[in-house]
């Protein structure tokens, strides 16, 4: 069997983890800060993936140009659903939120199956992003390097957005105490809609970038739901670094388990999951008790 070596496993794991991080970021804000248990987050990632795949195969849009489309479509869907449905359940019981978001997930799966069929969607990467670089005794896929670079750049941009801009200050104020923020004249509803749209858009971008790595078929939202949830729960609420660390750990563990313990399959990652949940009930870098 092809074996990438320790460095290769670490590298693949980090690329995988950066994808998980990108998709889970919006979920981290929704669950950790807006207190919404959104099991349908993967559906937005899937929507972005389908927009990218179909734009490429049916309209002939090049892959790199289809990525912003995926972001836009998913964030639009997010904004729309937030205004129409999600908003009414802020502050509802976790059970209601779970039921609602499972319902949404099932509908998205059924709709995707009906519209695009149950098979995997193919993706054509541009020449530039294919192939491998070889150095330090290991192979590094160019596409995976591209993934890590994109996610690193986006993370830096987001840190600036949340930490340094007016919108970031409004968002932090709104999630800290919505009532006081309203009293200070901040349009909390708008801020929440924008945050939700941004998170959904990032998920959509992650779904599009991930076609090559995670695959894309209608069961995507359920198949990866646990991974996204896990990044959020293990990462803890309120920081960018928590989910980043959690996603990296999960990515590396998952890839390492696939290479070194293939006979265990998904069992390994679920065992890691339960162990992490027991060891860090408030998340690795969690602020909450």
């Amino acid at each position: 069997m092809y074996h990438p070596g320790v460095i290769g496993v670490l590298f693949d794991g980090l690329a995988y983890g950066s994808l998980l991080f990108l998709v889970s970021l919006g979920l981290s804000v929704q669950m950790g800060l807006m207190n919404f248990v959104n099991l349908a987050h993967g559906a937005f990632a899937m929507a972005g993936g389908y927009v990218c795949a179909l734009a490429a195969t049916r309209l002939g849009v090049p892959f790199l140009a289809a990525l912003p489309l995926a972001f836009l479509a998913a964030s639009l869907a997010g904004a729309l659903l937030e205004r129409l449905l999600y908003r009414r359940l802020y502050g509802a019981s976790a059970l209601d939120q779970v039921l609602f978001s499972i319902g949404l997930t099932l509908m998205s799966i059924a709709a995707a199956t009906r519209l695009f069929g149950a098979s995997q969607q193919p993706v054509r990467l541009p020449e530039l992003l294919r192939g491998q670089l070889h150095f330090a005794g290991a192979d590094f896929g160019i596409y995976r390097m591209f993934l890590i670079a994109v996610v690193a750049a986006l993370t830096a941009a987001l840190a600036l957005l949340v930490g340094r801009t007016r919108f970031g200050a409004q968002l932090r104020a709104a999630v800290d105490d919505a009532r006081v923020a309203r009293g200070m004249g901040i349009d909390v509803d708008r801020v929440f809609t924008l945050a939700f749209a941004l998170g959904s858009g990032l998920a959509g971008l992650g779904g599009a970038l991930g076609i090559e790595v995670l695959g894309l078929d209608p069961t995507f939202p359920l198949k990866y739901m646990v991974y996204f949830l896990l990044v959020v729960v293990v990462g803890g609420a309120g920081t960018l670094a928590g989910p980043l660390v959690a996603a990296a750990i999960l990515g590396v563990c998952d890839v390492a388990a696939k290479y070194y313990l293939p006979q265990l399959g998904a069992f390994a990652i679920y065992a890691v999951m339960v162990a992490l949940l027991i060891a860090f009930p408030a998340g690795i870098l969690g602020r909450r008790a």
Partner: peptide, 28 residues
């Protein structure tokens, strides 16, 4: 014992995780 202490979210994750773990165990 893992379930009773946590918040709704922690309970949801632990029960989900245990369910998946058993499924994979039976599968393997």
């Amino acid at each position: 014992f893992l379930v009773v202490r946590g918040t709704d979210l922690a309970r949801l994750m632990v029960t989900l995780g245990v369910g998946l773990l058993l499924y994979e165990a039976a599968n393997r």
